[in-house]
C-alpha cells in the first residue's frame, strides 16, 4: 500500500518536506511507518519520532485523515490514506 505522510512544525523542518509518500507492506502498522520514516531521514527526525527504545514518542500525535488514532492501533493504515504527524508546539 501507499501512504501519504504529512509533517507539521518541527517535523516538517527536520524532514525538509511538507508531505511525502511511503510504500509499505499491506499489513504495516503505524510503528512500521515511523520506522520507514526514520530510515529514510536519519537521526534528527528519528529522535523526534522515536524514543531510545525504538517506540514512538508519546508527544507526537498521529492522525489518519482528520481522526486521531492510537499508536498501537492495529488496522489504522490502508492504501491511499493520509497520515498526519502532529508535532508538539506551544505559545510564546
Amino acid at each position: 500500500m501507499v501512504v501519504t505522510v504529512e509533517y507539521t512544525a518541527q517535523l516538517k523542518r527536520a524532514s525538509g518536506a511538507a508531505r511525502e509518500d511511503f510504500e509499505l507492506d499491506d499489513s504495516s502498522s503505524l510503528v512500521d511507518l515511523v520506522n520507514a520514516i526514520a530510515d529514510r531521514h536519519g537521526d534528527e527526525l528519528s529522535r523526534m519520532l522515536k524514543t531510545a527504545d525504538g517506540s514512538p514518542q508519546t508527544t507526537i500525535i498521529p492522525f489518519v485523515g482528520d481522526d486521531q488514532v492510537r499508536w498501537n492501533a492495529s488496522d489504522a493504515l490502508r492504501d491511499g490514506v493520509t497520515v498526519t504527524l502532529l508535532s508538539p508546539i506551544s505559545g510564546g
Binding site: 507539521t8 512544525a9 518541527q10 516538517k12 523542518r13 502532529l86 508535532s87 508538539p88 508546539i89 506551544s90 505559545g91 510564546g92
Partner: peptide
C-alpha cells in the same frame, strides 16, 4: 500554540 506559520 504556534510555530513558524503553523498553529494549533
Amino acid at each position: 500554540a504556534m510555530y513558524d506559520l503553523e498553529a494549533q
